[in-house]
Amino acid sequence: MLKFIKNHMESITGIEIYPMMSLLIFFIFFVALFWWVITAKKDYITQVSKMPLDNQNNQTSCDI
Rank of each mutant, 00 (worst) to 15 (best):
L2C: 05
G14F: 01
Q56N: 15
W36L: 15
I45V: 09
Y44P: 00
M20Q: 14
M21S: 05
V37N: 07
I5K: 07
N57V: 08
S11A: 14
F4C: 07
P52H: 03
W36V: 11
T60E: 04
I15T: 05
Q59N: 12
T13G: 10
F30Y: 06
P19V: 01
V31E: 02
I45D: 04
K6W: 08
A32H: 00
I17N: 03
Y44F: 13
N7Y: 07
V48D: 02
Y44T: 08
N57E: 08
L53G: 15
M51R: 08
D43F: 00
H8R: 08
I64R: 12
I12F: 11
A40L: 05
I25A: 04
L24V: 10
P52W: 01
T39M: 00
D63T: 08
L2I: 11
Q56K: 14
F34I: 09
V48K: 04
K6C: 03
N7F: 03
N55S: 10
L2R: 05
T13F: 13
W36P: 02
S22W: 14
W36N: 11
K50E: 10
T46Q: 06
S11D: 12
I5T: 09
K50H: 13
I28S: 00
M20P: 01
T13R: 12
N57M: 11
A40W: 07
N55Y: 09
I15Q: 04
F27L: 02
Y44C: 06
D43V: 07
H8Y: 11
I64Q: 10
Q47F: 15
I25T: 09
K3N: 12
T13A: 12
N58H: 13
F30H: 03
Y44N: 04
N7L: 10
T46W: 06
E10G: 15
D54T: 11
K3M: 11
Q59E: 08
I17W: 08
S61G: 01
Y18G: 05
E16C: 13
F30A: 02
N57S: 03
W36S: 14
F34R: 04
K50S: 12
G14R: 05
G14V: 02
L33A: 08
M21Y: 12
D54M: 08
F4M: 03
V31S: 01
M51C: 01
L23H: 05
E16P: 11
Q59K: 15
N55W: 07
I25S: 07
I28F: 04
S49L: 06
P52D: 03
Q56L: 10
M20F: 14
A40K: 03
T39Y: 02
D63N: 08
F26G: 03
E16N: 15
E16K: 15
S61C: 04
S61V: 12
K41H: 12
W35C: 00
V31Y: 05
F27Y: 06
M21F: 14
N7R: 12
L24I: 09
